[in-house]
Design a protein around this nucleic acid. Sequence first.
DNA 1: TTTGATATGTCAATCGTTTAACATATTTTC
DNA 2: GAAAATATGTTAAACGATTGACATATCAAA
Lengths: 325, 325
Amino acid sequence: MATLKDVAKEAGLTVGTVSRVLNNRGYISDDAREKVNGAMKKLNYHPNEVARSLQGKSTNTIGLIVPHIRHPYFAEMISNIENQAYKKGYRILLCNAQSIEEKEREYIDICTGNRVAGIILCSGTVSVEVFDGIRVPVITMERFLDNGTAAVECDNRQGGTLAAERLISCGCRHLLHVGNISSISMPADQRTEGFRQVCEKMGVAFHEVFTEKSQYHNMKYDALIEKALQEHPETDGLFVNSDVIAAQALQVCRRMGISVPGQMKVIGFDDVNIAALTTPQLTTIHQPVREMAEIAVNLLHDAASGKIVPKRTVLPVYLVERETA
Amino acid sequence: MATLKDVAKEAGLTVGTVSRVLNNRGYISDDAREKVNGAMKKLNYHPNEVARSLQGKSTNTIGLIVPHIRHPYFAEMISNIENQAYKKGYRILLCNAQSIEEKEREYIDICTGNRVAGIILCSGTVSVEVFDGIRVPVITMERFLDNGTAAVECDNRQGGTLAAERLISCGCRHLLHVGNISSISMPADQRTEGFRQVCEKMGVAFHEVFTEKSQYHNMKYDALIEKALQEHPETDGLFVNSDVIAAQALQVCRRMGISVPGQMKVIGFDDVNIAALTTPQLTTIHQPVREMAEIAVNLLHDAASGKIVPKRTVLPVYLVERETA
DNA sequence: TTTGATATGTCAATCGTTTAACATATTTTC
DNA sequence: GAAAATATGTTAAACGATTGACATATCAAA
């Protein structure tokens, strides 16, 4: 592996001059520049980023912690974050916590150990204290941490409101809501709040069922939905917290002989690819994932540069009318 | 940020001893071990992995290059690779090439610049020469490189064979195959070969349409499929190269008033989550993604340790019978 | 008592790059 | 012809951990 020294020798210059060319510092002649470029090409030289990082104070790496990759919402989120990070010259250290606290905590250590420029934490489950000792910016997505640097969310309450309004205006009178994991408090809980408020105001009954962490992991919601529909056979409107759940609800309805949207209206959340690939296609709440991702990376960048950044950013959602409601 | 020196001072020992504790080298007393652990905890010390990497010859990072993240097949692949990598103590540097040669090439440079232990390249599109100068192991998935270290594939030909046999045994006599990007030669082209061979042997006509690189990127196949079905209205069996395409084909059929599986049988490829969430559910060819991922990481690990590894590993596929064929 | 195992200290080099201080040219400009 | 700008060289410290050579000390067993 060629080093700066090798390049310098090849170019007949000193490391100082070569470094000046590389970093565009001080005075450099066109002649020197050419010699250096030629030598670099000839030796197939690539600066050792590890050494660079050690010399400087931190790396250009973002630690991206997600609970899952297979879940289309997070796949979408990761993709958008990578895009923006790449544009800004950051790399992604991918941390798949799998909703396992232990693994999440370990990955946080790995991030700090690798001197990341900052951490983007998507829907983390780890407790607050873990972040007390962290000196790098921590940007949370769909999760608020008192000791975090900044949080990015969509307007979850508004999403719940839109869903309830839509279902009720479709004529539904017996609603069922598949909410979040009950054990962890999340901004996404606000979906339920918005939903509840509308229902109460309009005098429409609704039941709520909670998911479990393990389901978040294996993405199997069939049994839960089937059980809930059996317990509440009068249900004619369903609002669930993700399109993945909604897609499975459609399968359950089909198995149970419940026609959608005839007997049952369904509204999902996220508006990921899958929403347009089910039959009937899913009506859902659109999360502005791209914008959230861009903002998160920008916040991280600004915070890492020592700027003061807004503690909380909330982006609007909107209803996408398709076929299920 | 606490350093080894700080820990040594806090523990009342020297860096040598502390290093011995950390790396379990030489003689260490329980007393010293305790002192060091206490000091580490007190100072919230995390070894600087950057410095460690610089000192050693390479990092414990795998450069994972994928053409897409949003595509469920790659999301699945990434997830499985991360899992196995984590078990083996590797980190993932996520490189989303977006099927852009320029970006893929740049990411390869970034990987070498960051002194990754090895590269796992999924369905890369970059030309062979790029890898000539690379000294780290390069494991390719679903792509064969003469100058690569090892390649992992599924039995694509077998997949094509199974699909053709199934469609024909379902009574289809006018087949259509949505194949790969025509401009790049890939192992996945073998699906077409296997498919063709069976069709020819059985005397069943079939047409083939090719996808474009941009479609791989934006995952929009509707127009292509619709056009193909209009050009070949006699089609009664469809074999497409991914479940994403198949799911869209179902939507197109619905729009065109073609009943599936009544008038049209459909077989996808990959067997990702989405396959069980469409209506009707997709019959598809299962790729052993988990096994492929594990093998890839193991190959990388072995190759990085200087072992000789098999140049090509092909894993079996099988047909998953659901509702579309 | 001697030997050897155990335990720690000291010191310095190394990994590859950056950067600053300082010296020394050459060329340009007034 | 002097001053200023341009260009490069020299040297060394720094980033943080690893590692090896070597010294020294304690304690056990032979």
